[in-house]
């Protein structure tokens, strides 16, 4: 059987809210090492990879590897019924066709359980090779969200160029053009405002803002987000989930003909 108890239950809610517009149905894979999900959007343009390590749960038991197919829309509906401070426990039998979510209030005066029907989902699992990225910029998640949102009102795509001077986000469209540059700032007073740039070689890639904007729905999960880029390879947009794992998104750059 599978059983996992998460004290920070709202973390699960944030994860599902971050991916449900990109991916409709997905398989959650459980093993003794943790709870993971890998899924592409319908058009196979972007990929979501979630990893929650078993040691990040208060209690984690998985007797046999299992894959649980869920409608993320329905899962979001159920998780919406959990209180913000509730402890969430997931339970599933090895051969069952449902997963149960139990919500406990912190004061232990309210307990509820919701059963979600599992579904059979054919999904293609992709191997993501370890990559030596040319540049990795780590910036406040809210800043990344703002850049993507602001540039979306100018154009459909963004050119992200990383040089030793900083990382420039440029967009152009009918309205005109926009450039936003973030510079390394590892001495900001507040840790949550720090920006760091790890540059091995300059790189410039063009991406569809629609997807980068969608990834920004993970903003509530982490103070910072990292963008890792290498020439002609998908960007990795990485939100670290403290003490537990990560939620990563991948998007291939647009290629000049």
């Amino acid at each position: 059987m599978f059983e996992a108890r998460l004290v920070q239950g709202n973390l699960l809610k944030k994860v599902v809210d971050a991916v449900k517009d990109l991916v409709t149905d997905a398989n959650f894979d459980c093993s003794s090492s943790g709870f993971t999900l890998q899924a592409m959007d319908n058009s196979h343009v972007s990929l979501v990879s979630l990893s929650l390590r078993s040691d990040g749960f208060e209690h984690f038991r998985c007797d046999r590897n299992m894959s649980m197919g869920m409608s993320l829309g329905n899962l979001a509906k159920i998780l919406k019924c959990a209180g913000n401070d509730d402890i969430v426990t997931m339970k599933a039998a090895d051969d069952g066709d449902t997963v149960t979510f139990m919500f406990e209030s912190p004061k232990e005066d309210r307990v509820s359980d919701f059963e979600l029907k599992l579904m059979d989902i054919d999904s293609e699992h992709l191997g993501i090779p370890d990559t030596d990225y040319a540049a990795t910029v780590t910036l406040p998640a809210a800043e990344y969200q703002r850049i993507c949102r602001d540039l979306s009102s100018i154009g459909d795509t963004v050119v992200i160029s990383a040089t030793k001077d900083g990382v420039k986000f440029s967009s152009s469209g009918d309205v005109g053009t926009a450039n936003i540059t973030v510079r390394q700032n590892t001495t900001a007073d507040k840790k949550e405002e720090q920006v760091s740039i790890d540059l091995k070689e300059p790189v410039a890639l063009t991406f569809a803002l629609r997807y980068l904007n969608s990834f920004a729905k993970a903003t509530p999960l982490a103070s910072h987000v990292s963008l890792s880029m290498a020439r002609d390879l998908p960007v990795m947009v990485d939100y670290q989930i403290s003490d537990m794992g990560h939620l990563r998104f991948y998007l291939a750059p647009k290629i000049e003909d």
């Binding site: 196979h44 090779p129 647009k254 290629i255 003909d257």
Partner: peptide, 14 residues
């Protein structure tokens, strides 16, 4: 408009 490449051409199928 530049074409949007799909991801499976970058990653291997497992």
């Amino acid at each position: 408009i530049l074409p949007q490449p799909r991801l499976p051409s970058y990653f291997t199928s497992e």
